[in-house]
């Protein structure tokens, strides 16, 4: 270890005077990575691999599959895709993700970042605090906050009460209700990301566009957006994956109900695996959820590559 040198630093031994290091040196250098690699393999890669195996078995906590586990082929997936509850939750997951992440958090985050650049200092600070506050509070608390806001005796009905629209929003529009709550909770992330990206755009470019008479919207569309394109795609990927795994917020607000009207894939998976003790089937759902995430990622990666 003591004789290690960096590339570019004055060599201390002739043996290291090579571009590629001997395997021994590579291994010695990689040693500090071991704890991280072990943890990641055992607790992240392991479960994913087990997922790929158990999804094809009838593993269960109680009942038929709890004794000897049998290999059941594609039965779990056949059962899933044949079930209305599963298809319902796939659709709800897509609605929830597109509505609250791709559209809601992303556009509102960008809008806030753009507005904050022009707003007065006091306004900027106060709004930033409110938005980030919503992001920092724990998700269960956020769930209760929105339960209170949208319930029949809640604040929203108090505000719009005079319009005669009062209703329990959690019952009438559950998936919209949880989507709005998720926009409220997650927008800060996109806002901070876009704040950082916008601050990296050289000011001369914006000023030049302004002098050319490019007004607000066309400047945004032809100058600003093209310059932060990669950030937009990366941000979309991260918030999509975050939103796909939202559980606590929905569970606190509606428990997936009424009925199954806001039961996204994570909640359906939880119900099947733990309430109904069907671990094998639950794992198959988990695999579908991972696959949905992978599909979104591949699409975003494609977009990134095209831009590069």
């Amino acid at each position: 270890m003591a004789t290690l040198t960096r590339p570019g630093s004055p060599e201390t031994g002739t043996e290291l005077h090579r571009r590629t290091h001997p395997l021994r040196v590579d291994i010695a250098r990689a040693l500090p990575l071991t704890p991280a690699v072990v943890l990641l393999l055992v607790f992240l890669a392991g479960p994913i691999l087990w997922c790929c195996y158990a999804a094809f078995t009838d593993t269960a906590l109680t009942g038929a599959g709890s004794g000897a586990t049998r290999f059941v082929g594609l039965d779990n997936f056949r059962q899933a895709f044949g079930s209305d509850a599963f298809r319902n939750s796939v659709v709800l997951t897509l609605v929830f993700t597109v509505l609250s992440a791709v559209v809601g958090q992303n556009l509102l985050g960008l809008a806030l970042a753009l507005l904050q650049k022009r707003a007065a200092r006091v306004v900027r600070m106060l709004v930033g605090t409110a938005v980030i506050g919503a992001w920092v509070i724990p998700e269960v608390v956020a769930g209760y906050v929105w339960y209170a806001f949208l319930a029949k005796d809640g604040t929203l009905n108090e505000i719009i009460g005079t319009l005669g629209l009062g209703q329990n929003w959690l019952y009438t529009l559950p998936i919209l209700a949880v989507s709005i709550a998720n926009v409220w909770r997650g927008t800060a992330f996109s806002m901070l990301v876009y704040n950082a990206a916008l601050s990296e755009i050289p000011q001369e470019i914006e000023e030049a566009a302004e002098m050319d008479g490019a007004t607000g919207f066309s400047r945004l569309r032809y100058v600003t957006i093209p310059m932060i394109r990669r950030t937009v795609t990366t941000n979309l990927m991260l918030i999509t994956l975050q939103t796909l795994s939202v559980f606590g917020l929905i569970y606190t607000m509606t428990k997936g109900g009424p009925g199954t009207k806001s039961q996204t894939l994570p909640l359906y998976m939880y119900e099947q695996a733990f309430s109904f003790s069907q671990l094998g089937y639950g794992t198959a759902i988990a695999l579908v959820l991972l696959a949905v995430g992978a599909v979104f990622s591949v699409v975003y990666m494609r977009l990134l590559r095209e831009e590069a």
Partner: peptide, 18 residues
Amino acid sequence: LFSTGLPITAIMVPVYGL
């Protein structure tokens, strides 16, 4: 970088099994 985005919720059932 990829694992940063891994939906942890999705692996909770296998993790429970593990």
